[in-house]
């Protein structure tokens, strides 16, 4: 999903050739998700089939085709910026890619992308914590004498106390998810601070060149790239 949307996010800036798209994608996401040209063309083909991109004109003398977003494609990109990444159903790196692109693509309110994500991740973290609370009750690591049987949710037999090892394993799995969700929130806090330091308070970034004629490398803005690299390495 992120490759599709990542390419579309770049096309939102203007038409591009497949090769240019590949380079821009890799550079702006700091190589988080390497692509080969074949993947790019396959993806463009599917996007075209789905009516999200279209050819910007006839092939140039060297036979290269430039692509641009359709209205439906533009709407899909807008929606992507607005909605949080779902941690359960998407690959781990999607959020990193999304924020890296949000910083480099013009007109995206990066602060609000980060805030939306943080709220969603905290919700996820809370859900995991409630499951953990039940797991703790089931294991009997309860607090006070009234342990598991007065909570209303822990003592109804759903946890099947037959196998304490399984309960413990389940608890550990939950805690693993809790720690990684927490790391994500901490990273997002850090992103917010970093953006504020870089003077990227909520306002549209200045419009940048349109890449209609991009054949070579799409230039990468050094300060933004630098901030992606430093935040990416933060624990």
């Amino acid at each position: 999903m992120s490759v599709r949307l990542g390419l579309m996010a770049l096309l939102a800036e203007g038409p591009m050739y497949g090769a240019g798209l590949r380079t821009a994608f890799e550079e702006r996401t700091g190589g988080t998700w390497p692509l080969n040209v074949g993947q790019v063309y396959t993806t463009l083909g599917r996007l075209e089939r789905d009516g999200l991109v279209e050819q910007a004109g006839p092939p140039d003398p060297e036979g290269r085709i430039s692509y641009r977003l359709t209205d439906a494609g533009r709407a899909a990109v807008e929606e992507w910026w607005r909605s949080p990444v779902d941690r359960v159903s998407t690959p781990r790196d999607e959020l990193v890619i999304k924020l890296a692109l949000a910083v480099t693509v013009s007109g995206v309110d990066v602060q609000s992308v980060a805030q939306t994500q943080r709220t969603a991740t905290l919700r996820h973290l809370r859900d995991l914590t409630r499951l953990k609370q039940r797991a703790l009750d089931a294991i009997g690591a309860g607090i006070g004498d009234r342990g598991a049987d007065d909570g209303g949710i822990g003592g109804d037999g759903t946890a099947d106390h037959a196998d304490p090892d399984r309960d413990l394993a389940w608890l550990l799995v939950l805690e693993n998810h809790i720690f990684s969700a927490e790391a994500e929130v901490r990273w997002l806090d850090h992103v917010e601070t970093r953006l504020a330091q870089a003077g990227r308070r909520p306002h549209a970034a200045s419009t940048r060149h349109h890449a209609a004629s991009t054949r070579h490398t799409d230039p990468v803005q050094p300060p933004e790239r630098a901030s992606v690299e430093t935040t990416g390495g933060h624990p």
């Binding site: 973290l125 809370r126 609370q133 809790i178 927490e182």
Partner: peptide, 9 residues
């Protein structure tokens, strides 16, 4: 701490 806030409703 997000992990602590997660105990809240």
């Amino acid at each position: 701490e997000a992990r602590h806030a997660a105990w809240a409703d």
